[in-house]
Each structure stands twice: as structure tokens, then as C-alpha cells.
């Protein structure tokens, strides 16, 4: 039974002091345990949305909140909400293991337990053997895995992923996407994924929101089984094509 909250975004707006409107009355909901991908051009407000959800930024109007299963609103405590940023953001003076264990350390979990829990997610993220390596000794893809493991180590019920694969090559991205899918499914966390990649969105998400100029341009439900999505199948390419067309319309470059 999944106890992750539903994430509800209601008429959320964010206007910066310089007059730029990053978000313009955005509304959507991510069901408990679901994965919604937000896709759109650079500067469409995706990252601002995620930052407000993580409470690193504040909305000028509206709100984004978590509603638990029985309908009561909940404010996620530290550790219940985790963010994996675009960059790995690891502490360069700590080993991979110490980086992964950091959120537990800050939550006051004792040494033996945080070692055990960190090792468990490190194993799940495919990082066995890299525990004692420093971030500078890891490849870009490995660093992202460490960042992902760190986000998941507190077993969050809400997971925010901000273009986690934007800094790695296509090959590594596909491998990482498999990892993200496994880890997300195992965690049961309600997840928002911000991405540039259409195929990544189609591969991971139940729902894809296409954003443009701070508004929701289109919402699309991916009609593929969550278990065995195959990037090489016809159905997969059709989904990708559909989203591509939607993006082209949003960008005003669609030809009919």
C-alpha cells in the first residue's frame, strides 16, 4: 500500500521582481506514487516550478501542496521531500558513501545505521565498489548516480528530479533512466521529473505536461505499461512522435 501523498499544484504563479513571469497560474496534480514529467523549452518555468515545490523559492500566487491519502494536507518534513538537481552537487571532500549518507547525518541518524542505509541505496543505484571514491574520481554518470542515491537515502515520499540526465551523454542517459525507473518504483515516491528529453519523458512518466511561457500547453497520459517500456517498439516511437508534434505546435514551428 502506497502512503505517498498526492502533489497538488493550484493556480501557481511566480513573478520575479524584474517583471518576468516564470509561472502563470499553473494547475495540475500528480497522483500518489505517480511520475509526472514536465517538458518544455529552456526558460519556460520548469525549474522555477520545481524550486517552489522544494520550498527553495516562493510563489507570488497560488500554491503547490501535498495531500496525504486520507485527504489531509501535509507539509513534508526534511527527508520526506528530496531533490535531485541538474548538477550532482556533491561535497568534493567526501567519499561517495559519505555524500550519500549526508542527509541521514544531518537528520541525526547514528553512524552504524546511516552506513547500512547508505550502502543499501548505493547498491540499488549500481554503485557497488565506488563507496570510497571521491567525486572527482567519478565519471559524470556515476556522480549523478551518487546524487540520486543521496536523494533516495531518506526514503522520501516526494521526489523532485530536475533534469537529472542533462549533463550526461545519450548512452549514459538511457542507462540512468533505467536506474531512475527502478529506484522510483521501489521507493513508491510521488515524483515530478523536469526534462528536456522527449524519449526520457515517454520512458519514465505516466503523465507528460508540456509547458510553454509559464503555462500548461498540453497534458498527455502515456498509454504504455509501466513495466516493460521498450524504446525500440513502435508504440514507444508513436508516443515520442506525438509529444514531438505537441512541442512543435507550442514552439510555433509545426507544418501540416
Amino acid at each position: 500500500m502506497n502512503s505517498a501523498p498526492e502533489v497538488v499544484c493550484e493556480a501557481l504563479s511566480r513573478r520575479f521582481p524584474n517583471g518576468v513571469c516564470a509561472l502563470d497560474k499553473i494547475s495540475f496534480r500528480v497522483p500518489s506514487g505517480g511520475l509526472t514529467a514536465i517538458i518544455g523549452p529552456s526558460g519556460c518555468g520548469k525549474t522555477t516550478l520545481l524550486r517552489i515545490a522544494a520550498r527553495l523559492d516562493q510563489s507570488t500566487e497560488g500554491q503547490i501542496r501535498c495531500v496525504s491519502r486520507d485527504g489531509t494536507p501535509m507539509l513534508p518534513r526534511a527527508g520526506q521531500l528530496a531533490v535531485c538537481f541538474q548538477e550532482a552537487r556533491l561535497l568534493p571532500w567526501r567519499t561517495a558513501l559519505e555524500n550519500v549518507a549526508l542527509p541521514l547525518e544531518l537528520a541525526g541518524v547514528d553512524r552504524a545505521e546511516r552506513r547500512m542505509r547508505a550502502n543499501r541505496v548505493i547498491h540499488a543505484a549500481g554503485l557497488d565498489g565506488a563507496q570510497q571514491r571521491m567525486p572527482a574520481q567519478l565519471s559524470g554518470g556515476m556522480r549523478m548516480r551518487v546524487a540520486l542515491a543521496r536523494a533516495l537515502v531518506t526514503q522520501p515520499s516526494v521526489l523532485l528530479l530536475d533534469e537529472p540526465c542533462s549533463s550526461v551523454d545519450e548512452f549514459t542517459r538511457m542507462q540512468l533512466d533505467e536506474e531512475i525507473r527502478r529506484l522510483w518504483q521501489a521507493s513508491g515516491a510521488t515524483t515530478i521529473l523536469v526534462t528536456h528529453s522527449v524519449s526520457e519523458a515517454v520512458f519514465l512518466a505516466d503523465t507528460i505536461i508540456v509547458m510553454e511561457h509559464g503555462r500548461v500547453h498540453a497534458t498527455h497520459t502515456v498509454e504504455l505499461p509501466q513495466g516493460g517500456r521498450d524504446r525500440t517498439s513502435l508504440a514507444f516511437s508513436q508516443e515520442v512522435e506525438f509529444i514531438m508534434r505537441t512541442l512543435a505546435c507550442a514552439a510555433g514551428v509545426a507544418r501540416r
Partner: peptide, 27 residues
């Protein structure tokens, strides 16, 4: 100190003293 790393500590709701010891000083 990298503001991105600051945010990692902000998300964990680490008190200022802890942040100084574990982030600001080593960085």
C-alpha cells in the same frame, strides 16, 4: 561557497552551526 551546495543543506533543514561545520568551513 557554492550556493548549490548551500541548497542541499537548506533542503535538509540543517541549522546554521551544522552548515558551518560540514559545508562552509571545509569548502
Amino acid at each position: 561557497v557554492d550556493p548549490g551546495l548551500r541548497e542541499v543543506f537548506l533542503l535538509a533543514e540543517a541549522p546554521p552551526w551544522t552548515r558551518w561545520r560540514k559545508l562552509d568551513l571545509p569548502a
